[in-house]
Design a protein around this nucleic acid. Sequence first.
DNA 1: AATTTTTTTGACCGATTGGACAAACGTTAG
DNA 2: CTAACGTTTGTCCAATCGGTCAAAAAAATT
Lengths: 211, 211
Amino acid sequence: MNAPVKPLRRTRIQTEKRDLILNAALEIFSTHGFRGSTIDQIAEAAGMSKPNLLYYFRGKEDIHETLIEKLLTTWLEPLRELDDVRDPLVEIRSYIRRKLEMARDFPRESRLFANEILQGAPRILPLLEGELKLLVDEKVQIIRSWIKAERIAPTDPYHLIFSIWATTQHYADFDVQVRAVLGTDRGGEGRFEDAARFLENLYLDGLRPKT
Amino acid sequence: MNAPVKPLRRTRIQTEKRDLILNAALEIFSTHGFRGSTIDQIAEAAGMSKPNLLYYFRGKEDIHETLIEKLLTTWLEPLRELDDVRDPLVEIRSYIRRKLEMARDFPRESRLFANEILQGAPRILPLLEGELKLLVDEKVQIIRSWIKAERIAPTDPYHLIFSIWATTQHYADFDVQVRAVLGTDRGGEGRFEDAARFLENLYLDGLRPKT
DNA sequence: AATTTTTTTGACCGATTGGACAAACGTTAG
DNA sequence: CTAACGTTTGTCCAATCGGTCAAAAAAATT
């Protein structure tokens, strides 16, 4: 009967059910946003009653917060891996590939994040100005050193990173639009390979004809 | 006392108040999404009572629908203007500039659209598969002709368009994140000029060093 | 098997939501 | 001036919201 929310030790059922709830909540939150989602929806998607769900989480906010926290750790992983052990162009190409794979494999996480940012990042603004900015600033230094060494063309490192975020996450966040425009024939899973090839070409050589 | 919603002729007050409401609704919808916004919020932002607002629109859905319709006509204008009278690279550069200007001058419209797509485009999917796809297909033909004539490097026209949408709208939709990362010093209005310069370089020549 | 602990649920609550309505208030044309 | 029409608002309503609670059911412990 006692407080089940923050148990020092978790029972088997608790870990299982919490995961079940978080998965259902990710589905709902990522497609309707925070305010557009209801606890009842999440409970139904998780196959349990609302009071039962509230036995495992303090409330709607608690679920969302847990989800966002879990997301952010894995979300920035690709950028963390960007370092200067390999050739700069190979490094950037790898980063694009990894981000594109995340858009393909974790579209719900991408949309959850997009929803949060779109609405002014009310819950994670401090994190963006702190942890995220620090990480980006660090990688910007690496890119600057590449430019100084003339290993890549001179360019704005911040906007380079923004453009990679934008182009890759687009395939998760705007998936409906992408599929609608590509149509049934080209809208299959092959679109991610096409996107990877296109972005690779774009970031390496741009559009200007060689001849 | 009669139906004020679809009057054949509109009084001066009706046009004024409808505009006032639509402007307020754009502000609210674009930052909270459809379900996250309330009629009371919109009414307050428009400086009138809820029943008064409902005198001018049939309901929440009606306002949103009017907003989306009005948005789509102007939103695709830059793409419509893309033709092959000028040099392909100039044409693409102009398109990027125009889209970037729209992200700067109409961020609320961009976010309204992003919200709609993020949530699966429940209200405008037919339009995406119809009107939008037709327009894109038309422009894809132009780009293909450029490639065939070797006036731009061979590339995937669809993903080229997607990447331009993504990179430009990013500055409206993810504005909070962009500002947070750039910090107070570089986050001013100059960021749009920086972005324009970066994207121009990227799309023309890519990152590979010249030497 | 008996008991303790964890899990699940039905019923309920106050607050907020989108919207209806009639009455009051303004405006304006005759 | 006044009747007709356009505009505004206070009040109300049913539905839905997030969340509580006590009690039943199931599991785990002894």
